[in-house]
């Protein structure tokens, strides 16, 4: 018992951290690409993409979780493909929790990054082009570095959202202690047991501390980036 939390509770915390880490890491490149498309590219279907990205934000999480189950369940079209090709099963597995968290956090991540890409002066990108940079290199050498604080903010926001994701996760991967029981699922499980409110409360306090820590860390990092740019 560390901090008054059972090994089972700690396992949930560790799993949540792992799930959120991978969810953010793997969705970040896709998030940046999507944000760039929405901010700078003009193509047919842009509004459709915008709608799709925001869908998890407005759908009930349980619906998103159920759709994931339909698509990625063992008999779902994508789930069967993944299983046959790579031997990967997402449903009722921690990897599935990561997918659910990534999808639920995606709109927040894309929004933060898109705003910061839109804040980059297109004039700087034009200047880079006249100096011989192709579109890809303009993005890598000018847009991306100038967007770094926004990307950081988007990643932290997505991480916090992933840590707190509950509805889609519990629908898609259930609440199996030690396997798919994330921090929110554990809080939920404690609340179902008479007399475990104290454990639930400790877990709640811990999750508040984690969220605040992430927020402060991102604030400090962003301030350091800005200081460097202002030449102090």
């Amino acid at each position: 018992m560390i901090l008054g939390l059972s090994p089972e509770a700690w396992a949930a915390v560790a799993l949540s951290l792992k799930v959120s880490f991978w969810a953010v890491l793997l969705s970040l490149p896709i998030g940046i690409a999507t944000a760039w498309l929405l901010a700078r590219a003009r193509f047919p279907g842009r509004q459709l993409l915008n709608g799709l990205v925001h869908l998890p934000l407005i759908l009930p999480p349980v619906v998103t979780g159920y759709l994931l189950l339909l698509a990625f369940g063992r008999r779902g079209p994508l789930g069967a493909l993944l299983h046959d090709l790579f031997g990967v099963t997402l449903a009722f597995n921690w990897t599935g929790a990561a997918l659910a968290a990534a999808i639920m956090a995606f709109p927040l991540m894309v929004r933060a990054i898109r705003l910061s890409i839109e804040a980059v002066d297109p004039g700087l990108e034009q200047a880079a082009a006249t100096l011989g940079a192709s579109r890809l290199r303009v993005f890598l050498t000018v847009t991306l570095p100038l967007t770094a604080p926004g990307i950081l903010a988007g990643a932290i926001l997505a991480f916090a959202k992933a840590m707190g994701e509950f509805g889609a996760t519990i629908t898609f991967v259930s609440n199996i202690p030690g396997r798919t029981q994330t921090l929110p699922s554990a809080v939920y499980a404690f609340l179902q047991v008479p007399g475990a409110e104290a454990s639930a409360l400790r877990l709640v306090l811990l999750s508040v501390a984690l969220a605040m820590g992430a927020l402060i860390a991102s604030e400090l990092l962003a301030r350091r980036m800005n200081r460097r740019r202002e030449g102090a």
């Binding site: 002066d121 004039g123 700087l124 034009q126 200047a127 880079a128 082009a129 006249t130 100096l131 011989g132 940079a133 192709s134 579109r135 290199r137 303009v138 000018v142 570095p145 100038l146 740019r229």
Partner: peptide, 20 residues
């Protein structure tokens, strides 16, 4: 020819130096 292959130097009114 796209701008990055023209090799034409462009000095803008507002400088447009890369701040980073």
């Amino acid at each position: 020819l796209p701008p990055h292959r023209r090799r034409i130097g462009y000095v803008f009114q507002d400088g447009r130096l890369f701040p980073h």
